[in-house]
Each structure stands twice: as C-alpha cells, then as structure tokens.
C-alpha cells in the first residue's frame, strides 16, 4: 500500500510515453474519450483506422500484463443503476467538454492550455461532490 505512489509514478511515466508517441509520431492528441467518441458520432471519419489501432492497443495490452499480478482488484461497483448512470454521465460529459482525464488532464495541463486546466478543475469538483454526496450523504455507494 505504501509503495502505491511509486507504481503510480511509473505508470504515469508510461502514460506520458504513450501520449508522447501519439503526439510526436502520429501528430495527434492522446485523449481516450475523443478517440472513441469520434468513432461513435462519426466526427473522426478521416482517421478511423488510427483510432481503431489505438483502441486495440489500449484494450489488448493490459490483459497481457495481468498475469504478472497476483490479483488485479478493480473494486468496481456491481450496482447496475450506478454503472449505467455513471457511464452515461461520463459519455455525455466528456464529449460535451471535448475531453477527459487524458486529453484535458494529461495533454492539456502539460500544454498549459487554459481549457484543459479549467476542465480539470471542474471534473475534479464534479467528481469530489458526486462521490461525497453519494457516499457520505446518501450512503448509495
């Protein structure tokens, strides 16, 4: 538990390396919601194969590393209502704001983008409020 921050840092560097490859080689910003959303609403039609290739790497590579761990516990909720509501909110919110934790967070903050910084402030605020109200206020999660 106390070494979690070291693995956080190592994983963060790997995430940064992914963003660097996508920017310097593909000339694209690595934002998970935008890459998927562009395929879903058709706005990314001219870069379809590249988007599929990125998503394939994101979906296929982590399971290959899972056997290195004794357990990968996701502690994910099994409440169907919570999962559907949260998924809808994440889908709508990230597309309305044009970015999520990777696009606005990692890529936007590092570019010192005002939009990226403002988005990060508000999704942290929204996340903290929703969690504290749902957990400590309503006892839902």
């Amino acid at each position: 538990m106390h070494q979690d921050w070291i693995w956080g840092l190592v994983g963060g560097l790997m995430i940064g390396a992914g963003a660097a490859v996508y920017l310097l080689l593909n000339g694209r910003i690595m934002g998970a919601s935008g890459i998927l959303g562009g395929l879903i609403d058709g706005s990314g039609r001219d870069t379809t194969p590249e988007r599929f290739a990125f998503l394939a790497g994101l979906i296929v590579v982590p399971p290959l590393l899972v056997p290195l761990y004794k357990v990968v516990d996701t502690h994910v909720s099994s409440n169907i209502g919570v999962l559907i509501l949260a998924g809808l909110l994440v889908g709508i919110g990230t597309r309305l704001a044009n970015g999520c934790t990777s696009g606005h967070g990692v890529c936007g903050i590092s570019r010192l983008s005002l939009r990226g910084i403002v988005a990060t402030v508000f999704y942290l605020l929204g996340g903290g409020l929703a969690l504290v109200i749902a957990r400590h206020g309503l006892g839902l999660i």
Partner: peptide, 24 residues
C-alpha cells in the same frame, strides 16, 4: 459546454471511479 460537460463527466467519474481510459 466545457464547464457543464466537465462537471457531468466528473460526477460519473466519482460515482463509478472510472474514466474512459481505465474503463477501456
């Protein structure tokens, strides 16, 4: 849209503990 979208996204992120990258 940037502010409203980020608030909505954050709310979903907090409820499930998932954002698009880790979910995929």
């Amino acid at each position: 849209n940037l502010v409203l979208g980020s608030l909505l996204f954050g709310a979903g992120w907090g409820l499930a503990g998932l954002c698009p990258g880790p979910a995929l």
